[in-house]
């Protein structure tokens, strides 16, 4: 058997793959958090709950209507995104003039509501979501076995991340968005509907979380607490990367996923805590975060 640093290479690559998968979700979620924070100045604590809603929506679509994975991948983000837009219009829009921390508190409350309702109707135990037939099986790469679905998750989330980055950095709409992040009043004076942009940005960020949720459904079980466990890790990722840069959020997300995967191989006891340790080290060395411009 081939070994690297005394570890069987199959185990090493297997954990690296799991790391990349986790990293995909970190990247998607921290990207959404960063985009929302840029426009709304709100840290969306409900992001984890909305990710969970995406998974639950996929599960319910399959249970009630028999609509499969591919439909869910489109429908769930749209539905949950629309739910986000309603939240922004009815609740969040009253907070923009207040201290940022109120946004955190309100979205924390929303997360509790959503998770509580989900627990009441689904129970705390995880519900399995069956994979679509087209994504079953896998490839033997010679040094490891690569399940098709895992490959798909990595490719799809990379594609979505890069597309988002391109839209924000390279298109006219993205230019408006960046301008409105810097100075909303001035952008409004140029006749651009900034409140509408804010609403749609929140909707998009929430849809991104739901998209991640649908992709996560077949890998992890669908459970009400899947989001709250993840969101705190994503917060650490965001602290490490800094929210100033979209590309930074993506790179940090994938990078930390890999770090976590490697820790599982070499020092499994620390795999739950390694990201927080990295955060502490980054705070000591570079308080503004790896990609942050200033504190």
């Amino acid at each position: 058997m081939v070994t690297i640093f005394g570890i069987p290479s199959a185990a090493l690559f297997g954990q690296l793959l799991i790391g990349l998968i986790n990293g995909s979700f970190y990247a998607l979620l921290s990207l959404g958090l960063a985009v929302i924070f840029g426009m709304l100045n709100i840290i969306n604590f409900a992001h984890g709950a909305q990710y969970m809603l995406g998974a639950v929506a996929a599960f319910l679509l399959l249970q009630w209507t028999g609509l499969g994975y591919w439909t869910a991948l489109i429908v769930a983000p749209l539905v949950v995104g629309a739910f986000g837009i309603i939240i922004e219009r009815t609740l969040l829009q009253w907070l923009y003039k207040l201290d940022h921390l109120y946004g955190l508190l309100l979205t924390f409350g929303l997360a509790l509501i959503v998770e509580g309702i989900a627990r009441n109707f689904l129970g705390s135990a995880g519900l399995p979501y069956t994979l679509p037939d087209s994504l079953r099986g896998g490839q033997n790469l010679g040094f490891m076995f690569l399940p098709n679905y895992r490959a798909w998750v990595i490719v799809a989330s990379l594609a979505v991340c890069i597309a988002t980055w391109l839209v924000i950095e390279r298109t006219r709409l993205g230019a408006y968005l960046r301008a409105a992040t810097e100075n909303p009043t001035l952008v409004r004076a140029f006749g651009i509907n900034v409140p509408l942009m804010i609403t749609l940005t929140y909707g998009f960020g929430v849809a991104l979380a739901a998209f991640a949720g649908v992709m996560a459904a077949p890998i992890y079980n669908v459970s009400p607490q899947m989001g709250s466990e993840l969101i705190i890790v994503v917060f650490a990722v965001v602290v490490i990367g800094g929210m100033g840069s979209i590309l930074g959020a993506i790179v940090t997300g994938f990078g930390l996923g890999i770090v976590e995967g490697l820790t599982k191989v070499f020092f499994p006891e620390a795999s739950n805590t390694v990201i927080f340790v990295v955060m502490a080290i980054v705070l000591l060395v570079r308080p503004a975060g790896l990609f942050g411009r200033r504190a």
């Binding site: 955190l104 965001v238 602290v239 739950n272 805590t273 927080f276 502490a280 705070l283 504190a295």
Partner: peptide
């Protein structure tokens, strides 16, 4: 001493993350 290196919203996230880390330590 770690958390006060950042302000506002980051402070909240750092304290939450550190608490979660020590939760896992307590679990183990």
């Amino acid at each position: 001493s770690l958390a006060i290196r950042r302000q506002g919203i980051y402070f909240a996230m750092i304290t939450l993350a550190l608490a979660q880390m020590m939760y896992f330590v307590a679990l183990r």
